[in-house]
């Protein structure tokens, strides 16, 4: 499994390919306490964007909002275009952008679950370190950067 590539996290702190969706959390540009939960389903490419309290994003006028665009762009940075396209089952012609190749429509999706996965993700930063050896990690060598 290739390691993810480093990217700026300020705008989109969380991106994942899970539960049959490209999903993640986008920080609001205007309110530091607010985040948007954005997702694009694999196969159907149905998309959704709402606040973590399930209020619909005001930017969804029949097309993906800027949060969804940021999510797709950061996912490509993190996983590479190939892996994201394969997961979403979308053909992206040479030179085209991922988001422009999706043909889904807006459909409600569970924001609470994605948000709780984000909180679980953040909770790793609060797990204390350990100085007991973990021999099992020899199966997981740190690899060099790719690309």
């Amino acid at each position: 499994m290739p390691p993810v590539r480093p990217r700026k996290l300020a705008k989109v702190p969380f991106v994942e390919l899970a539960d049959g969706r490209l999903q993640g959390v986008v920080s609001s540009g205007s309110d530091i306490g607010r985040v948007y939960v954005s997702s694009i389903a694999a196969g159907t490419h149905a998309y959704n964007c709402s606040t973590n309290n399930n209020r619909p994003c005001g930017g969804l006028y029949g097309a993906p909002c800027k949060h969804l665009q940021a999510l797709a762009a950061e996912a490509v940075l993190q996983y590479g275009l190939d892996r994201v396209a394969r997961y979403l089952r979308v053909e992206v012609p040479e030179g085209a952008g991922l988001i422009g190749c999706l043909d889904g429509s807006h459909e409600p999706a569970p924001a609470a679950m994605v948000f709780s996965r984000f909180l679980r993700h953040l909770a790793y930063l609060e797990v204390p370190d350990t100085t007991m050896p973990i021999p099992e990690l020899h199966w997981f060598p740190a690899e060099g950067t790719v690309g």
């Binding site: 480093p6 993190q78 790793y124 930063l125 797990v127 370190d129 100085t131």
Partner: peptide, 17 residues
């Protein structure tokens, strides 16, 4: 001898960070 430190992280923290 060996001495190890293991820390929890997330996948977006990689490399020198």
């Amino acid at each position: 001898v060996r001495a190890a430190v293991t820390v929890a992280k997330v996948d977006t923290i990689t490399g020198p960070a």
